[in-house]
């Protein structure tokens, strides 16, 4: 049943997000092609505009991935459609998992598309060399591979977005338990959960600082940011965001299992 639910959830979310993907890629290509033409002010201007369009489309696709996941969640679980959703012979667990997976999948594909756009816009041997040497410098100095480093950055972003996604879901679930002002309460609760967890993150990094002087330095001073420290912080972030995601997921599922309260 999870597969069937996923099919419909993904279809719904992607219906709009894909448009942004296509636009972002088209603008990237236009930017690249016009950028290649030399000695033409017109094409240079077009290229610059296209780059900003591509970036705004990429950002929109990211925002839309989250927004559409939340809107889908609300409509499908609490609005008119919920009368069908909750009367399907499907476990609540599957309903929720489908929403989480579809949201997460969309976030991941969006990240890939954004990378692709960056690649189209800016790829050149010279740029790659600069990037490579930069990363290699960092990598070789700190006993890691380039791939590892890239993967770490991607994981931090990905997990953070998934945790934000879950924050929204939990806010919606808790807000809709109430009998009045469901949507307002959902948004406020979502923000509240987000704020609390973010404050906790800072606190956790602070605690990390107690054990590692480098991290303390990062907090105390503006300069002297070294890559090793950032790497450690990123490792921490991966752990923290992963922990939050699991925690939010468990709470959300427990709350949902207690039953819904549709209008």
């Amino acid at each position: 049943m999870l597969g069937k639910l996923l099919k419909y959830d993904l279809k719904w979310i992607y219906k709009v997000v894909v448009i942004f993907y296509i636009l972002a890629i088209i603008f990237s290509i236009v930017a690249r092609v016009t950028g290649e033409i030399e000695n033409s002010l017109l094409f240079e201007v077009i290229s610059k505009i296209s780059i900003s369009c591509a970036i705004s489309m990429a950002v929109s696709s990211l925002i839309n991935s989250l927004m559409r996941s939340w809107v889908r969640f609300t409509q499908n679980m609490y609005k008119d459609e919920s009368y069908l959703t909750h009367t399907l012979p499907v476990k609540k667990k599957d309903l929720f998992n489908s929403k989480v997976i579809s949201g997460a999948v969309c976030i991941i594909t969006t990240m890939i598309v954004i990378l692709l756009c960056l690649f189209i816009c800016f790829y050149s041997e010279a740029n790659m060399e600069i990037l490579k040497s930069l990363l290699e410098l960092a990598a070789t100095t700190y006993n890691t591979t380039v791939l590892n480093l890239l993967l770490l950055v991607a994981m931090v972003f990905g997990l953070e977005l998934i945790y934000v996604l879950l924050t929204g879901y939990l806010g919606l679930i808790l807000g809709h338990k109430s009998n009045t002002n469901k949507m307002l309460k959902s948004i406020l609760l979502g923000f509240l959960i987000y704020s609390i967890t973010q404050i906790a993150t800072v606190a956790l990094i602070g605690i990390g600082g107690l054990f590692s002087g480098d991290i303390m330095n990062l907090i105390n001073t503006v300069e002297a940011v070294n890559i090793e420290t950032i790497k450690n912080v990123m490792y921490m972030c991966v752990g923290v965001y992963f922990g939050y995601s699991v925690l939010l997921y468990i709470i959300a599922r427990k709350q949902l299992n207690k039953g819904v309260n549709v209008e």
Partner: peptide, 9 residues
């Protein structure tokens, strides 16, 4: 009706 259909508890 909603109670019977698990839309409320």
């Amino acid at each position: 009706i909603k109670l019977i259909n698990d839309l409320l508890t």
